[in-house]
Structures are given as structure tokens and as C-alpha cells.
């Protein structure tokens, strides 16, 4: 069966993508369409251009180039023929389609009062294919447990784009909510989890119902600005753990502090290449200096798969063996 993201492509592009070798197709992460320039696909850090007969090449000259009709058809399909329903999305520069796949847009912006109001003449698309990887958090979760409080530690996950942050916190939310702690001594039930999903990426909600498995005790506030959503969740849904993606604005930090005082554990992600990077980011550094986060995780993806490193509240690297578990148990 074809994955659901294929249905947003116009026939011509869809046929080309279907002709890709299975080894590439199943690992597709991004499909990039730029009008009258080569059609590009990305898999785990590598890129290829597509030729007109569905082969792959690195030669830009030999590649298939989508034309104006292709891009206007694509836009028509991803907006469900109704660009006017996407004004907010166009302001932000991306559209999330059913399944949590995100489509970034580039074109000419229209300004209103100095702010971006709209994008027109859209000619660049980046379709980021979201994949649910159940078990992505298996190795990390045992290290984030708070045995005293029978909960999880305040955690910040740092990585550059495209390394699997969202996949990781989606799985964390699922496992925390269902209470699979992956640790022999952790024997408390699942917790109430609240996800504030500003870009509909974590839960991939469709009509308000998550399309990914985010666990049985998880509430999702979909398409809501993070700071506001966190406050709403704290007030109304009494979460024990809050999961948010990509914090970075001053109001996000305020809401996080509010969550701390409300006794809610927070698992958040932020863009950043390394643990030392966050010192130079105004909002994040304030949070770090105040000792808010008890654990930092940095992600890196290589051909072997996802690797991660952990750092404690004082930003000292710590070993990857959970407390109370021997090395061999952790491997198993």
C-alpha cells in the first residue's frame, strides 16, 4: 500500500516517486520540489535528483525539472483546493497535512504592516515525511526517570533539524503515558501527558484526533501557540508531564517556569547543534542558568542510526547506563 503522503502529489510526480528503488523509497525523508529546477529527494543525510524515468542521479542537468503546472497542482492538492483556508499556515510558512507530514513553502511574501501576511507565487516545496518509530525512546527513557517522585526529569532535547527530535518525543510521550519505563525498578503506572502540538507534527492530529500512537493517557492541544497552549493545559487538563516541541521564544520560557511551579514535568526540544550552543541563545540560556532542566539530551544521526548523549543539570556529560541497571541489562 502506498503511504498516505503520496496522495498529495499530482499524478506525474507521484508516478516518478513510485518508480524509485525501494531502498530509497522506504527511507525517504524529504521531497523537494522547486519550480523549473531538479526534483530532489533526501534520505538520511543523502540527496538524489530524480530523472524523468524515475531513476536517481547526482547530475543536476540530467534531472527531471517540475514545471509551473506541477507546482500549482501540488499547491492545489496540499491545500485541499482551498488556499483561503490556509492563511494562518501561509503566514508561518508551512502546511501540515494529514499524517503529520509537514510541507514547507517558499515564494514571494506579501507584507502587511511590516509583517509577513501571505506567501504568493509559491514555487518551492519541501515535503518532510513524518515517520512513527515506536521504540525510538527505548534507550533514552530509563535515563530520564525520577525515582523519588515516580515521574520523569525535566528534560531538554537538543539537536539540529532533521535528526529525529520529534520522533523521539512522540515515542517518549507514548511510553510515559502507557507506563512502559524500560527499567526493572520503575514500577509506577503511566502518567497523564499533555502535548502542545503547535505544528501538528508530534501527534499528527486530524480533526483533533491523533493519527499517531501517543499513548492512552495523552491529551493533545493541536495547532496551538506553545506558550498559550501550555498555560491552557496546566489550567484545564491537570497534566503530570508536558511535552512541547521547539521552544525558543521568551513567552515559551515564561510558560515553562509556570509549569515548573505547577509541579508539571516538562520534556521539551530545541534547535541546537551542541550542549555549548545553548549558552549563546538568550531565552534558552536563561532557562539553563536557572537550573530548570535536570537533564539534557543531544541527538546525532549517523548511518548506524540514532546516537545520543546525556548531560546533567550542570551540563556535565553522564554515562549512558541508567542508575540501578548494569551495563548488560541496559543493552538488552
Amino acid at each position: 500500500m502506498d503511504p498516505n503522503w503520496l496522495s498529495v502529489f499530482p499524478d506525474r510526480l507521484r508516478h516518478l516517486l513510485q518508480k524509485l528503488p525501494p531502498s530509497v523509497f522506504t527511507r525517504l525523508e524529504e521531497v523537494r520540489i522547486r519550480e523549473s529546477r531538479p526534483l530532489e529527494v533526501n534520505t538520511g543525510g543523502r540527496f538524489y535528483f530524480l530523472t524523468a524515468d524515475g531513476g536517481i542521479t547526482r547530475d543536476a542537468e540530467a534531472a527531471f525539472k517540475p514545471d509551473k503546472q506541477d507546482s500549482s497542482r501540488l499547491l492545489d492538492l496540499i491545500t485541499n483546493h482551498s488556499l483561503y483556508t490556509m492563511e494562518e499556515e501561509l503566514r508561518k510558512g508551512f502546511i501540515t497535512i494529514p499524517g503529520g507530514h509537514r510541507i514547507g513553502l517558499a515564494g514571494r511574501t506579501v507584507l502587511g504592516g511590516g509583517k509577513v501576511e501571505h506567501i504568493r507565487d509559491i514555487s518551492g516545496f519541501n515535503i518532510r515525511i513524518a515517520r512513527e518509530v515506536c521504540g525510538a525512546a527505548d534507550q533514552v527513557l530509563p535515563l530520564l526517570l525520577d525515582f523519588k517522585q515516580k515521574s520523569v526529569l525535566h528534560t531538554l532535547i537538543l539537536s539540529p533539524p532533521q535528526q529525529g527530535k520529534t520522533t523521539l518525543i512522540r515515542d517518549l510521550a507514548r511510553q510515559i503515558s502507557s507506563g512502559t519505563w524500560r527499567h526493572p525498578e520503575a514500577r509506577w503506572p503511566g502518567l497523564k501527558v499533555a502535548i502542545v502540538d503547535e505544528r501538528s507534527e508530534i501527534a499528527g492530529c486530524r480533526d483533533g484526533v491523533p493519527s499517531y500512537d501517543v499513548g492512552p493517557r495523552t491529551d493533545v492541544m493541536d495547532g496551538c501557540p506553545k506558550a498559550e497552549g501550555m498555560m491552557m493545559m496546566i489550567r484545564s487538563m491537570s497534566p503530570e508531564v508536558m511535552v512541547v516541541d521547539e521552544i525558543g521564544r521568551p513567552e515559551d520560557a515564561e510558560a515553562l517556569v509556570e509549569a515548573l511551579h505547577a509541579g508539571v514535568r516538562v520534556i521539551a526540544t530545541a534547535h541546537g547543534a551542541d550542549i555549548d550552543d545553548i549558552g549563546s541563545r538568550p531565552v534558552l540560556s536563561k532557562l539553563v542558568d536557572s537550573g530548570f532542566f535536570q537533564m539534557y539530551v543531544t541527538l546525532r544521526r549517523s548511518d548506524q542510526g540514532l546516537t545520543f548523549r546525556l548531560w546533567d543539570a550542570k551540563r556535565r556529560g553522564i554515562p549512558l547506563i541508567p542508575p540501578g541497571m548494569k551495563g548488560r541489562e541496559a543493552d538488552a
Binding site: S72, S82, L83, Y84, H118
Partner: peptide, 10 residues
């Protein structure tokens, strides 16, 4: 022009 622009334009 159906569906291809913002509300005002439509």
C-alpha cells in the same frame, strides 16, 4: 481563480 488565493481575493 477558484481556491488559489486568500479570502479577500476570492
Amino acid at each position: 481563480t477558484l481556491g488559489t488565493s486568500d479570502r479577500k481575493d476570492q
